[in-house]
Amino acid sequence: MMMKWRGWALATGVLATSALAQAAPPSAAMLSNACAGCHGTNGGSAGPSMPSLASQSKEAIVEAMKKFKSGERPATVMSRLAKGYSDAEITAMAEFFSKQKLHATSQTLDKAKIAKGASLQDSNCGRCHIEDGKEGKDDTPVMASQWLPYLQMQMAEYQSGKRKMPEKMAEKVKPLSGDDLEALLHFYASVK
């Protein structure tokens, strides 16, 4: 009804001089900038438990937001905030962040673990987390340069069963030791 009235007003020029008539729907930047208070300017996070969204795969963000919205993926604030956006708005934000430059985090990582992770990643994770985790197949998230504490929190949620592991991932993760997984996370966090 609101739109109808607005459409009529626009067509008849009733609102020609008001701010309302001249306002375009929220742009991708308008929608996305609001996220930056928690995820950093242009999605480059400075907080170790908060994922960077810059350069994240568009499909992965869309998938995450849908699962936050439905409650399928465990969350605190994101399950509530995701409900504030339409599917089209989520897609626009996902596209905005996917186009931002990869945010190189400066964090303390273990060199031996990075080396071990590097030797494990290709055969175990590389089919989906392609290009050393700088890209993701389909809706697989980009892992490169992500904060280690964030990655560790997510892995813990997967292993506790709170967050559901994709089947292919579960197959690969099952035989790996806790040390192996930790090494893989150090590796992905180190990729710039």
């Binding site: 208070g37 928690c38 950093g40 300017t41 400075a46 907080g47 908060m50 605190t76």
Partner: peptide, 19 residues
């Protein structure tokens, strides 16, 4: 009440002040 939210809160502060 949430322990995870306390961890997120600290990253909230780091991010918003860095911004």
């Amino acid at each position: 009440l949430s322990e995870v939210e306390a961890i997120y809160a600290e990253s909230w502060l780091r991010n918003i002040l860095t911004e």
